[in-house]
Amino acid sequence: MKKHILAFSVALLAAGAAHAQSDDTLAKIKASGSITEGVREASGVLSYALGNGVYTGFHYEVCANIIHDVQKQLGLSNLETRYVPVTSANRIPLVKNGTVDIECGSTSNTLTRQTEVAFADTLYVEDVRMAVKANSGINSLSDLNGKTVVTTTGTTALQVARQYKRAKNVDFHEIFGKDHSDSFLLLETGRADAFVLDSQVLAGRIAMARNPKDFKIVGETLSVEPIAIMIRKNDPAFKKAVDGSIARQVRDGTVARLYDKWFMKPIAPSNTTLNLPASAATRAAWENLNDKPAEAYKVN
């Protein structure tokens, strides 16, 4: 009997140690000499794939700088970055279960999500609108009556669209793309009349389309949402390191330069320009760094 109790106690101690290790990302990074980054393959200019396992984008570059600062903090001569492509549907579970240490995509910081994960300080504040074909005649959300609207599975845009549908008594059919590329393809091929999502993702998909002039972003702002880098909950040391790097990048002008590079200048692979100046809300976030959720923001 005592042997069984001892074995059970050892098992509990081992499980507790494993859990503690998973909640101490800095210790995990130092012990393994590697960090695992969640990246997106088509999240506008925040994070996207160039092919052959190469990723880039605004949040991707911010995260590269964070990882470099973490390496210096830990005194590591080398730190390997391992990339895991994530989707809107699996990004939160992969952060929670320790598969991904830091997710550098286009995740909205919401109160509901804060019960499962933590967010770094916000560097980009997004508005949710819709993309349509330029010749569709759709200019407002009220024009969606009887139309088909696509959103990407696992995004907050779905809830926002449904709220509008109920509030305005607009009857539209909902379909879902498995990722942003799939959602845009549904719009491009005429299977959807409108694609509702973050404006910068919509602008990025349009910029990379075969004929960008065939599409436009229209309609009212459905919601204003802080988009932030995601990490595990209950890991104050890692959050402090991440937020400290972000503060440094704001302070020395890195963030402003990266924003100009990705939102105001031609980007690969299409060499097109989004021409999306930093909004007042985004600039306010830089000036007063915080991790407030979307519910703290109001639609004007």
Rank of each mutant, 00 (worst) to 15 (best):
H4C: 02
A14R: 00
Q21Y: 11
Q21P: 00
L26V: 15
I35F: 04
E41H: 01
S47L: 01
L50Y: 09
L50H: 14
G51L: 03
G51H: 13
V54W: 00
V54I: 12
Y60H: 14
A64G: 05
A64K: 12
N65S: 13
N65M: 11
V70M: 04
K72T: 11
Q73P: 03
G75T: 13
L76Q: 07
N78K: 13
R82N: 08
V86Y: 10
A89G: 01
R91P: 09
R91M: 15
D101K: 02
C104L: 06
G105N: 05
T107V: 14
S108N: 04
E116S: 15
T122N: 02
V125G: 02
V128P: 00
V128Q: 06
A131V: 03
A131F: 13
N135G: 04
N139Y: 09
L141H: 09
D143I: 15
K147H: 04
V149P: 01
T152G: 10
V160K: 01
R162F: 02
D171M: 11
I175L: 09
G177W: 07
H180Q: 06
S181R: 04
D182L: 11
S183F: 12
L185A: 13
P212A: 06
D214A: 09
P226G: 08
I229S: 02
I229H: 07
D235L: 03
A237Q: 12
K239D: 02
G244L: 12
G244F: 12
R248Y: 06
R248N: 15
Q249Y: 11
V255N: 09
R257Y: 01
K261R: 15
P266W: 11
A268G: 00
N271Y: 08
N271R: 07
P277H: 05
S279V: 05
A281K: 08
T282R: 08
E287C: 07
N288K: 13
N288E: 09
E295H: 10
E295G: 05
A296L: 05
Y297W: 10
N300K: 11
